[in-house]
Each structure stands twice: as C-alpha cells, then as structure tokens.
C-alpha cells in the first residue's frame, strides 16, 4: 500500500506518496534526494543515517516514512546555512574530524542533538552521544574533540 506523507525537512515542506515499507532513510535519499544522510548497515547499528526527528535523534533506517507524516526532520543539509558553516561543522573542519566523510553527517546530527539537549555536556555525555556513530577511519578522538570545543565555546558564550 502507498500513503501520502507530509513532512518538513530542514524547514522545507514536502509531500510524497510512498509505500508503507519505505524507511525514512530511503524516503530522504531516494524520494527527496537528500543524500547527505547515509546508509551504512540498515539495521540501526552504525548511526550513519542519524537524523533529528521531532527533536529526537533517531536512526532513519529504523523508522518508516509513514510514521513520519506531519513530522519535522533535520538532516546534515540543514546544519549551517548556505556558505556559512555551523559552529559544529567548523569545528569538524578545523579539527580534521573526518576522513572518508561517510559517517560525518550522522556524527554531526548526533552532536547537534546533544548540544541542544545538554549545552554544557561532560566528556561522558559527549562519548555517550557519539558512541552510536561508527567510524572506521578517524578513531573518533578528533570528532569528540570537535564537539568538546563547540561545547566549551557555547559555555563561554552562555550557551545557546
């Protein structure tokens, strides 16, 4: 069966007719052509497809698109503005916190959700938040450090 799904992604409203079995991940990538969100395992183990769904971090491969009718989704494409990187993106760039880049969109979403939930995270908070994001290249330390830097800055500036 196919269903109409109305969804707001990165502030833009979309409507699409999708089969019930289509995951949010495939809807983002194949229907809306928002390919920044990646597929790494399709079973909720790697975090490459992490997006923020109605304010909560989810693995988009573990959500059906039909479940998201009326929902608000944020993906890497909505992180930062055109030609202006977000603080997190900039920290990832400055800290060489990526290599092949395939896990980077998911990492950014996990970090963003954390910083909104806990603007002043401890190291353990950061590690817990990033632990669902598998990266085969970097060994994580640079990404953790990038999040740490943004958190520290946010703290200095009174948070968000």
């Amino acid at each position: 069966m196919e269903y109409d799904v109305r969804i707001t992604v990165n502030g833009e409203r979309y409507q699409a007719r999708v089969p019930a079995s289509l995951t949010l991940l495939r809807m983002l990538r194949e229907v809306l052509h928002l390919t920044g969100t990646k597929e790494g395992c399709s079973i909720g183990e790697c975090g490459a497809c992490s997006v923020i769904l109605d304010g909560k971090l989810v693995n988009a491969c573990m959500v059906l698109a039909v479940e998201c009718d009326g929902s608000v989704v944020r993906t890497v494409e909505g992180e930062g503005a055109m030609d202006k990187l977000s603080d997190l993106q900039q920290a990832f760039v400055d800290n060489h916190a990526l290599q092949c880049g395939f896990c980077t969109p998911g990492m950014l979403m996990a970090a963003r959700e954390l910083l909104e939930r806990k603007p002043d995270p401890t190291d353990d908070d950061i590690i817990e938040a990033m632990a669902g994001q598998i990266c085969r290249c970097t060994g994580y330390e640079t990404a953790i450090e990038a999040v740490r830097r943004v958190a520290r800055k946010g703290q200095a500036g009174g948070g968000k």
């Binding site: 909720g44 992490s50 971090l57 693995n59 996990a110 669902g132």
Partner: peptide
C-alpha cells in the same frame, strides 16, 4: 540497550 538513537525509538 543499544545506542541513544535506538533508545529514542
């Protein structure tokens, strides 16, 4: 259980 993102669902 699993990861933070999974626990959200």
């Amino acid at each position: 259980i699993a990861t933070f993102a999974i626990r959200n669902r």
